[in-house]
Write a protein that binds this DNA or RNA. Structure first.
Lengths: 292, 292
DNA sequence: CTATTTGATAACTCATAGTTATTAATAATT
DNA sequence: AATTATTAATAACTATGAGTTATCAAATAG
């Protein structure tokens, strides 16, 4: 009679799949290497598929093993979250929603959402984490996150997206810069200045949009600094190291000595979108999406 | 020391949640009732939540238990599906294959392959990318590609090659050129014309073959243009900037004002080969190779 | 006030996860 | 070519804990 597969097998499989080394994986699991080898072998027999290639002196995953690893990552995250939700429901809460967001969403949509959600569903718990676009999408695919606030042009299959906030762009200048609301008519007026931008690896869409604003007006900005955080960018502007183009709403919440001038006559908009997994099973997610 | 939760617990939990009766559930699971009771109790201790109310003489689910039941139903379905899918991927009847090809393969072998493959293995996903010989071999070595369609004389160690299509060469002439099917007897008749060839760095084998066709007939062609794309070559011929020697099958799919005359009495053939890494582990590859 | 149903407890046993010791095979070093 | 170092598999043993049987306690039904 054949054995039954257990979570233990999955745990061991993931350890080996990550380490690609039986002894190291065994150490990590605090069990002996032969014990681990046997459990993996047993798992392969139960499923009926070779998951690892033990070639020469190195271990690697088969194509089927690669698929299984990705799915088991998801399954474990989902089980963990289910256990957590079960405990919360037991304690009388309506459950938890895990939200990721770009720092720039913290000035506009997120605070409003939290206030409204808290009033409507006082027993929902919120877990908030600032993350990059890319990390949010990854975490959503693995079921480590229910909802993300991103600035992206497209998302992978299985992920849904909806724009929730559209913002104009503003020019951020040192407080004593010669331009002001009256005299500022085109972004071209600062074409000779140094520009401070968000890194393209943080949000390539963002980067491209800002570049296109300048290119539409016939110049290529001299980019002197790149940063991930709005705070850093404002500090650099304040220190007169350059000017920056940022979503208008970002000026809220910061009190640097920085002047914001909305850029006139441009078509580009900073779009903030929510993303979630199509087959997300958290019942709280539906309720929160309805608030947006 | 606390125990670890296992799929066994989940299976038992679901049986009790469905029967709402420990003895009946135990019977269904072919285990004894006390054993089941103990496992359920252990599960409740691990999660830290009471899942069943054993009130008076009947068993019922708590609210948290109801939530958990729904999620565990889903989790088991997802695990089952994942196991099945893993087996399918292992057998190669599902999954993905990444194919690279020269533009000139798009007229003959690739479309036939796709039609046939789609009929035989409808669940296989194809990723197709047009690439040069050199890039294909590189990508295969890096395991970024499973299969390539190239025109090469030899490949590096570890890469395998097999000819899948052999083609004669034709002369491509402007539509109103004096030669025609009747009067064309030897390539020597155009030895004074300018020749348009594929660049040797795109496919050196190709270049060398075409040169040898001419040299066998006792002349060296005057090469006036070189290009990477068939489309460009035909455009240049149409514009009467020269003549070209191309694989006969290339005439399909283009509607330039160009006349094709098969070159008689030559031994050279345009060979299209598939290349793959010897120790490629994608089971889909085997299936696709068998179709060729 | 029995008879019956049902889950929990207690004590036992046995299957198997995990152990230690060793081997086989390959790669790196001399 | 010989030696040493790595690394996973094999073999034989151990002990944990899942599952067993026997029994009890509580609750209802007749």
């Amino acid at each position: 009679m054949s054995y039954q597969i257990e979570l233990r097998h999955f745990t061991y499989f993931l350890a080996v799949a990550e380490e690609l080394h039986f002894r190291k994986a065994a150490d990590r699991l605090f069990i002996s290497q032969p014990g681990l080898s046997r459990q993996i072998k047993q798992m392969e027999e139960i499923i009926g598929v070779t998951l690892f290639i033990r070639n020469k002196r190195k271990v690697s995953l088969t194509v089927a093993g690669q698929y299984l690893k990705k799915e088991l990552d998801y399954i474990f995250n989902h089980i963990d979250f289910t256990m957590k939700q079960t405990r919360l429901i037991d304690k009388g809460s309506d459950g938890e929603i895990r939200i990721g967001f770009l720092g720039s969403a913290m000035q506009t949509v997120i605070p409003e959402l939290l206030i409204q959600a808290n009033a409507t569903y006082p027993d929902i718990q919120f877990s908030l984490e600032e993350m990059s676009n890319h990390l949010q999408v990854d975490a959503i695919e693995k079921d480590q996150l229910d909802l993300g606030f991103v600035r992206l042009a497209r998302v992978p299959k299985g992920i849904e997206m909806k724009t929730v906030h559209t913002d104009t762009f503003s020019l951020a200048l040192p407080i004593n810069h010669k331009l002001n609301e009256k005299t500022f008519t085109s972004i071209k007026q600062v074409s000779d200045e140094h520009f401070i931008l968000f890194s393209s690896d943080y949000s390539s869409l963002y980067y491209d949009k800002i570049m296109s604003i300048c290119e539409d007006k016939g110049f290529t900005p001299k980019v002197s600094h790149k940063s991930v955080h709005a705070q850093t960018i404002f500090k650099l502007v304040e220190s007169e190291l350059g000017v920056a183009i940022v979503p208008t709403s970002l000026q809220r919440g910061f009190n640097f000595k920085v002047k914001f001038l909305e850029i006139p006559k441009i078509s580009q908009r900073a779009e903030l979108s929510i993303v979630w997994k199509k087959d997300n099973r958290n019942p709280v997610l539906k309720r929160i999406k309805n608030l947006l």
